[in-house]
Design a protein around this nucleic acid. Structure first.
Length: 656
DNA sequence: CGGTGGAAGATTTTT
DNA sequence: TCTTCCACCG
């Protein structure tokens, strides 16, 4: 098992310090630890489950416990395994461990469930290669060449759900026909679907006692963060290893918001109810002002959950809690922007008691202290526009980066191909926009080229293609070569126009400019540029150092903390979201709102619009029930009279 | 091959 | 409304 993780993770070079949860509010020295943390850190038990509400020092407690075990010589670091759900969380834990343990921190495993499983699987002889999204689609086409594209999604879902069950029951169910064919093909090629990594590992752990013994010998202590996000397969992994290892799990069932992707927070209670599990509750919140915390608590109490205890506020600031009702989404966005300007201009006349031991940092709100959260990512552009109009910088977290937008992505694939970094699937994406090459040719290539080839043109060398298409492919090959040369001799920026005209792309000037500006940074280092693009191609990640307002979904805000939080579009149908086929989960939606509320340390402002256009139809909206669940005494409703908008919209509203 | 038009569907996101 | 996916035609 290797602990030096060669992570291909986009955030690994972005140290997450500063604005992340609990970084500032936690007790810095042992004497400041609260009694519950003390217990969680020092308790001796083979299984410990810590319920840790928002802002109670979850990661601090986890890290401190690990540090204690290692420093006290109770276990060598190499037997400790800290597992998280995201690379971001892993990096955070890793960073903090390094702060405490220095290089000794490298001896323990800190990583995601996937990484954990993968590290073990790669110790096996003849271990399978892993295939991701693009290659999965490609392989799919090869196995089922006659299936229409629409069937792909359907079957992909079936496969994923089958894999989930594969791990979850003693003997796996019979897979559907297509699922079976797909899995057979994987086995034949000795490759592993990325979604199969954890189930496959768990299956092996369950069935292969030699393997389990091997793993168990190494895993003495298992630490799991955000335990409420666990799914069946992961739970089984933890409990199987927990037969030998000491398990320390920490999380908050009230913040379980990933049910839609298989997380089941009831497993949290299942673990709690195991006979040997000791439990601890962290109850002191160091983050949020009292009123904010009280409100959040009042809201989440509408969800039934036995045994939930009240969280005790430790940040004695009064805080500010506002509700901004607006007639339209545009007006709502304007109100938010205006409120930002007012609060940044000087908060003293809002009589906010900062409450932080004597610091009089009033008015110290900067752009990076602000986040605007929405239920749907679709809500962000409207707000971004409003911010932009007033010259307020913002980062749209989670959005598709501009260079991956439809009209620009061919350029991305071209650059990856030219730098020799494109996968077969990405070459095929590129071919879709190459002149003279159509769907038929791509189909042929997709069904014959083996995924995993590093040199596409070698891979297609022997293929019988129509002369016209062969010529076009040769031309592409040449263009790529010339482009690469040109990048080295001149620089990337000046070579790009050539690529754009070859691909016949129509790109808005503003975006061309951005692309040029970005490529300019890399001079003539094409590989570095391609690398950068690849790292940032999935979605825009939150950059805590950027001096900009963060705009993101409630989901992406989990784990973060800001002095000023806006939650926009708090309306029935949006938050709680109602799906058209009625499969709604009010409690999960409430948890989502709760997560959003508890991101705020000083100011929390929720807003709604009386109308909203969804799927093309304009609808009348009611304020969310969640707003009514906030104790009225704590919530101040502020009706903004916007200068730009005509007096009342009452007349317009009659239309609905 | 590549352009067009009509129909259908449309959360949240990680590895 | 906006995107994506298909079928069809020149």
């Amino acid at each position: 098992m290797k602990n030096k993780k060669k992570s291909v993770n986009p955030v690994s070079d972005t140290p997450l310090v500063g604005n992340t949860a609990a970084s500032s509010a936690m007790p810095a020295s042992p004497k400041n630890r609260n009694p519950e943390q003390e217990v969680a850190i020092n308790l001796e038990a083979s299984a410990i489950l810590v319920t840790a509400g928002p802002g109670t020092g979850k990661t601090y407690t986890l890290v401190t416990r690990i540090v204690r075990l290692i420093r006290a010589g109770i276990t060598p670091a190499s037997q400790c395994f800290a597992i998280t759900f995201t690379n971001r969380a892993a990096n955070e834990v890793q960073t903090r461990l390094r702060l405490e343990l220095g290089d000794a921190a490298d001896a323990l495993f800190v990583g995601t469930f996937h990484r954990f499983c993968l590290d073990w699987l790669t110790t096996m002889e003849n271990y399978p290669a892993i295939i991701g999204q693009e290659d999965r689609a490609l392989l799919f086409k090869q196995i089922f060449p006659d299936l229409p594209g629409s069937a792909y999604q359907e079957t992909a879902v079936a496969i994923t759900s089958y894999l989930e069950q594969l791990a979850a029951v003693p003997s796996p169910p019979e897979p559907g026909e297509r699922t079976r064919l797909y899995l057979d093909e994987l086995r034949r090629r000795n490759v592993l679907d990325i979604d199969a990594i954890i189930p496959y590992f768990v299956r092996k752990l369950h069935d292969d006692l030699t393997f389990r013994d091997l793993v168990s010998k190494r895993v003495g202590y298992l630490f799991v963060d955000e335990f409420q996000d666990i799914n069946r397969a992961q739970y089984l992994l933890v409990t199987l290893l927990g037969r030998q290892a000491a398990v320390f799990a920490i999380g908050d069932p009230d913040q379980a918001i990933y049910g839609f992707r298989g997380s089941d927070f009831r497993l949290f209670d299942e673990f709690r109810n195991l006979p040997h599990t000791a439990t601890v509750q962290l109850l002191r919140n160091y983050r949020s002002a009292t009123a904010i915390l009280q409100s959040a608590t009042a809201v989440i109490r509408h969800n039934q959950r036995p045994g939930r205890q009240k969280i005790i506020p430790q940040n004695n600031a009064d805080g500010l809690l506002e509700y901004l009702p607006a007639p339209t989404p545009a007006a709502e966005a304007e109100s938010i922007v205006r409120r930002i300007e007012e609060l940044m201009a000087g908060i003293s006349h809002f009589s906010i008691n900062s409450g932080r031991g004597g610091e009089t940092e009033e008015g110290g709100i900067s752009f990076r202290d602000i986040a605007i959260l929405t239920r749907l990512s679709r809500q962000t552009p409207e707000i971004a526009k409003a911010l932009d109009r007033r010259g307020i910088p913002c980062q749209q977290v989670g959005s598709t980066p501009f260079f991956m937008a439809n009209h620009l992505s061919p350029l991305y694939y071209f650059i990856k191909a030219a730098s020799g970094m494109a996968s077969v699937g990405e070459y095929l994406e590129l071919l879709k926009t190459c002149p003279g090459i159509g769907a038929h040719t791509i189909e042929i290539l997709a069904t014959t080229v083996q995924p995993g080839y590093t040199d596409f043109f070698i891979a297609i060398d022997g293929l019988k293609l129509a002369t016209g298409q062969a010529t076009q492919l040769a031309k592409l090959h040449e263009k790529l070569r010339v482009f690469k040369q040109s990048c080295i001799i001149n620089n990337i920026s000046s070579s790009i126009n050539e690529a754009i005209s070859y691909l016949d792309l129509t790109i808005p000037e503003s975006e061309t400019k951005r692309f040029f500006a970005l490529s300019g940074i890399f001079g003539n280092d094409l590989a570095a540029f391609a690398n950068h693009l690849e790292h940032n191609s999935a979605n825009t990640i939150y950059d805590p150092r950027a001096e900009a307002v963060a705009l993101m979904t409630l989901h992406s805000a989990k784990g973060l903390e800001f002095p000023l939080i806006f939650i926009a579009g708090v309306e029935e149908g949006i938050l709680p979201y109602s799906h058209h086929d009625g499969r709604d989960d009010i409690e999960e939606e409430r948890r989502l709102f709760y997560v959003g509320m508890t991101r705020a340390s000083r100011f929390l402002i929720v807003s709604s619009s009386a109308t909203r256009t969804l799927h093309g139809i304009s609808r009348r909206m009611q304020p969310s029930r969640f707003i009514r669940e906030i104790p009225p005494g704590l919530l101040k409703t502020v009706e903004h009279k916007l200068p730009g908008h005509k007096k009342t919209t009452a007349n317009q509203l009659k239309l609905f």
